[in-house]
Simulated assay, not measured.
Amino acid sequence: MQRDSTIGTAIRKRRQALGWSLQRLVEASHIEMSTGHLATLETKDMAPSVYVAEALAKGLGTTLDVLLREARDPTAFEAPSEHAQRVPILPWEQAAKWAVDPDPRRLPPGSSWVMPPDTPPGKVFGLKVRDESMQAPSGISFPAGYTIFVDPGRKALANDFIVGHLGDPAAPVFKKLTLDGSAYWLRSLNPQFPMQQVGDTFEVIGVVVGLRAAFDKGGVL
């Protein structure tokens, strides 16, 4: 980025509009940066690298192009919503209810809102993988601690990864939906976990459409 860029002003304006601290923006951007360095970028004649600028833009729920436009023309600024382009990480027991009625007021205090891999449509939400049942020995795998993104509006097909329940909406499961003849089964990717045939009480909550893993000093967030 050019040294005469005033993108720091746009970053600071959006951060303050969200009511965020410097630390909150660093955490939302998933980058290695001190709050002091971020404060310098916001207030001094110092342009961040493209990588840092894009990460900060994503953390703010916008794009680098928007920040650059707002830096060039402050009148183009539109106050952001904290949850714009973000989806909530739900408690598992709330997944079925959210799929029907996505009401943020029901979320526990301090719930996380994160950026999915793609712009989320409608009621998309995130869940933290709870166990090792979907951790495969090889190939596609969903280790415990990773975040899956679930789309309740997408129709589930054979071989989709789905979140559903077996009759109790407050006890959802995460499995691969497989078809054997005319019968549907729920299959874990970990061979140590048994398959389970789908019964009349089974209901799909949503189809898994994305996966994210964040690392902090070698650990999964």
Score class of each variant (00 low, 15 high):
2 Q>F: 06
2 Q>P: 09
5 S>F: 04
8 G>E: 01
10 A>W: 00
12 R>L: 12
17 A>F: 10
17 A>Q: 09
18 L>Y: 09
19 G>E: 05
21 S>Y: 07
21 S>A: 10
22 L>T: 11
22 L>Y: 14
23 Q>T: 14
25 L>V: 11
27 E>I: 10
31 I>S: 06
33 M>I: 12
41 L>T: 04
42 E>I: 04
42 E>L: 06
43 T>Q: 15
45 D>S: 15
46 M>G: 01
47 A>V: 07
48 P>I: 03
48 P>E: 04
48 P>Y: 06
51 Y>M: 10
52 V>P: 00
55 A>W: 02
56 L>N: 04
56 L>G: 06
56 L>C: 08
58 K>L: 14
61 G>T: 03
62 T>N: 04
64 L>N: 03
68 L>K: 13
71 A>Y: 04
71 A>G: 11
72 R>H: 13
74 P>R: 03
74 P>F: 04
85 Q>F: 10
85 Q>W: 10
90 L>R: 03
92 W>Y: 08
93 E>C: 07
94 Q>V: 05
94 Q>L: 15
97 K>T: 13
100 V>D: 13
102 P>A: 05
102 P>S: 08
105 R>C: 03
105 R>P: 00
107 L>P: 06
107 L>N: 08
107 L>M: 10
110 G>Q: 12
110 G>W: 11
111 S>W: 02
111 S>T: 15
111 S>C: 13
112 S>K: 12
117 P>K: 01
119 T>L: 13
121 P>C: 07
121 P>E: 14
128 K>A: 11
130 R>S: 13
130 R>M: 10
131 D>H: 05
132 E>Q: 09
132 E>V: 03
134 M>E: 07
134 M>H: 05
134 M>D: 05
135 Q>A: 07
138 S>K: 05
140 I>C: 00
141 S>Q: 02
142 F>R: 00
144 A>Q: 13
144 A>S: 12
145 G>Y: 01
145 G>N: 01
146 Y>T: 14
147 T>H: 06
147 T>L: 09
150 V>A: 02
151 D>I: 05
155 K>L: 13
155 K>A: 14
158 A>Y: 02
159 N>E: 15
159 N>M: 12
160 D>W: 09
163 V>K: 02
163 V>I: 14
164 G>A: 10
165 H>I: 04
166 L>T: 11
167 G>D: 12
168 D>H: 11
169 P>I: 09
170 A>N: 09
172 P>A: 06
173 V>W: 03
174 F>S: 01
176 K>Q: 15
176 K>E: 14
177 L>H: 03
177 L>Y: 08
177 L>C: 08
179 L>N: 08
180 D>F: 10
180 D>P: 00
181 G>D: 11
184 Y>H: 15
185 W>K: 11
185 W>T: 07
186 L>E: 06
186 L>V: 08
186 L>T: 05
188 S>Y: 01
190 N>Q: 03
190 N>E: 07
192 Q>T: 05
192 Q>S: 09
194 P>A: 08
196 Q>R: 15
196 Q>M: 14
199 G>N: 14
203 E>Y: 06
207 V>I: 08
214 A>W: 02
215 F>E: 05
215 F>I: 12
220 V>H: 00
220 V>E: 00
221 L>A: 05
